[in-house]
Amino acid sequence: MNEMNRTPLLEVRDLVVRYPIRGLSKREIHAVDCVSFTVHRGETLGLVGESGCGKTTVARQIVALERPTAGQVLFDGTDISTLRERELRALRPRIQMVFQDNDSSLNPRRRVRELLCAPMLYHGLVDRKDGAALERRLGELMDMVELPREALDRYPHQFSGGQRQRIGIAKALSLAPQLLVCDEPVSALDVSIQAQILQLLRSLQRDLGLSMLFIGHGLPTVRYISDRVAVMYMGQLVELAPSDALFDRPLHPYTRALCNAVPLADPTARDFTAHVLGGEVGSNMTPPTGCRFHPRCPVARECCKDMSLNVSLHTVEDGHSVACPYAQERGG
């Protein structure tokens, strides 16, 4: 992709998000800490990690639902974290989000037609008076997500989970975005339906030249859809690499643990319980010093808990970067 050389569509720089805890003065939840990554034009970046690691918080900053404590979110060169609400409004159609739970993101009292029209009318993408153009656009959207046009006149509850997710996608696409932020879009669906939605997202991305940030916790799913994948642990990125490289040659001990813990659909495969991680994820209020993974790391050393340990991502090979300072030493 020669477009890769141009400015990335999205660049997140040293993103920090802390939430104050009510009633506990001066204590904060360290939700996201110094996260940096880019999403190129036409690229899908996967973001994986376990519940509570900060994936969704990152998404919320990118779609500017919240303002980060520090750091920048550059969309097409503009830092959206400092824009005023009015300036943001002009930008919002270009960044759209697909949610996991469409029961709560689609208004149950609106027909699909109304759900899809509202954002287009609000942003002035179609003329309210031009009924024919509106109808044409609605038809296009239904075709894109492979739903029949009759679906326009039904309510969200009249659809199955997979169909509702298609409506959620149509709603996001209605504003012709450049970046689609998908937060666990298939986690609540059955596997055969997951496959349908994943294939839909992939073909839409190709046909429309979309860029995607795909958040998930299912490793096979994220691998399937992503060009590159970033792994998060306790608010920090621990590894970032092209999809295949990451899953075939994980370098960070946490990424390895994640990969090892996935049961494979093969009774003769290696035992997924053989290398279970000990302990539990620590508190986000007082994250461990040094490498945040050190209390659970099977290959931790004494110096891993040093405050001075540099755990920012460093590149070890083409496009593959890892936060563990000893990853290379141990060998791939």
């Binding site: 055969s192 496959a195 096979p220 799913t221 990969c259 996935v262 494979l264």
Partner: peptide
């Protein structure tokens, strides 16, 4: 079809099999 509808974490990115209908 069910077995082929799951993306494999270990293998190639072959096309997923989706079962039409419900």
């Amino acid at each position: 079809m069910l077995l082929r509808s799951v993306p494999r974490v270990d293998g190639a990115r072959e096309a997923l099999c989706s079962i039409a209908g419900q």
